[in-house]
Design a protein around this nucleic acid. Structure first.
Lengths: 214, 214
DNA sequence: GTCTATAACCTGATAGAC
DNA sequence: GTCTATCAGGTTATAGAC
């Protein structure tokens, strides 16, 4: 705290011994490991190996595996929540706002397949213990508001906004979460390839729009 | 192998020492444990405790944890696949057949929440290694056939049957898999209570029917 | 068929040198 | 800040008595 200012990086080179860089690299590796195996199954040894440091560094920076897990969750969720909240329902209208959010979900899930998996692990393995603490529920608030707006303006049919919000998310992310199971339905295809992703996005959009429209 | 025939259970009492009963009880306990923690995270000690026998019995009957896991998967899936294949698309028509299958999914998922979780663990943790071996893909064949029939008879809109099938399943089961995360959306409500389940079933049905109809 | 005991291994976390 | 070494606890799987 009383050392040289963070911004003043005047030393010639410091490939190693860079706290912030190391912390970020640990977070990246941890996110992938937690997505693969969950909080319980994740191995700190593997996270360290993927980061390129030793296990001790993880405990030096994050004190415990659980603590590291929460840091991963928070970093991943905060940006998504903000992104969703930036959608302007008033200017877009309910239908366009819904489409925008659905595209956000699908694009984020394909650009980084870790978060959907982590969220499901969180639900099944940890019973949502850390989910609430991060305020992830507020993300659903955006979607629910869009659905309510659509009902009010008669663009959407009469529906239960909360249940429908959950169902929409399930429709969007199941493709990514169950990917390794359902891949046999498309032999020889890469489910994360450009054409398949575009197809999923379009099919999800069509389905959802048809499903909620008045 | 050369002992008394299996059917001839003439001994007075055998509350313990009943191979078939013990094996079945182990399978029940294992299914729950695998649903909670996946193949990797499941503890044979816990399965034994829940069964009421010792850990050694599990290895006596199933040889390994992996073997037990496959037995659980097979037992759970075979009945579901048969149940789905019994739907008569010709006599019901595409729309009614679809509704019937959706109700099967939701009812099965609420009567036994283990299978959806195990399937997701299987995909994420095991990369679908055991999924294919059990022939689970054939379950999707039923749903895909229903969707194709509906398109042919102009009851359903033009859609990609495979993608839509996956999306329908996701819409149905996400509610159960993410339950512990999304429960905060309904404070004080039991998501597996009768009213909530009925609501989810109806919302899923309405959404899906509206989403695929011509 | 069921149990007890134990082998062989792995993992989270810490201490202490540099 | 980063590493090596290590402990304490827990896990799969087996051997052998009953």
């Amino acid at each position: 705290m009383s050392g040289p200012a963070k911004g003043a990086v005047s030393k010639s080179r410091q490939q190693s011994r860079d706290a912030d860089a190391t912390k970020a690299r640990i977070l990246d590796a941890a996110e992938e490991e937690f997505a693969r195996n969950g909080l319980l199954g994740a191995r700190t040894e593997d996270i360290a190996a993927k980061t390129g440091v030793t296990k001790a560094m993880i405990y030096y920076y994050y004190h415990s595996k659980e603590n590291l897990y929460q840091a991963v969750l928070e970093r991943a969720l905060v940006s998504r929540i903000r992104q969703a909240q930036e959608i302007n329902i008033d200017s877009l209208g309910a239908l366009e706002a819904l489409k925008t959010l659905v595209i956000q979900i699908v694009d984020n899930s394909s650009k980084n397949t870790n978060l959907p998996k982590i969220m499901l692990y969180e639900a099944i393995q940890n019973k949502g213990k850390y989910y609430k603490e991060v305020g992830a529920v507020s993300w659903y608030g955006v979607l629910i508001k869009i659905l309510e707006r659509g009902m009010a303006t008669k663009v959407f049919r009469k529906l239960d906004p909360t249940h429908t919000a959950v169902n929409i998310v399930g429709l969007c992310v199941f493709y990514f979460c169950a990917r390794e199971n359902i891949k046999h339905l498309w032999p020889g295809q890469n489910l994360l390839g450009e054409e398949m992703l575009e197809q999923h996005k379009q099919d999800a959009l069509d389905f959802i729009v048809a499903g909620v429209r008045a």
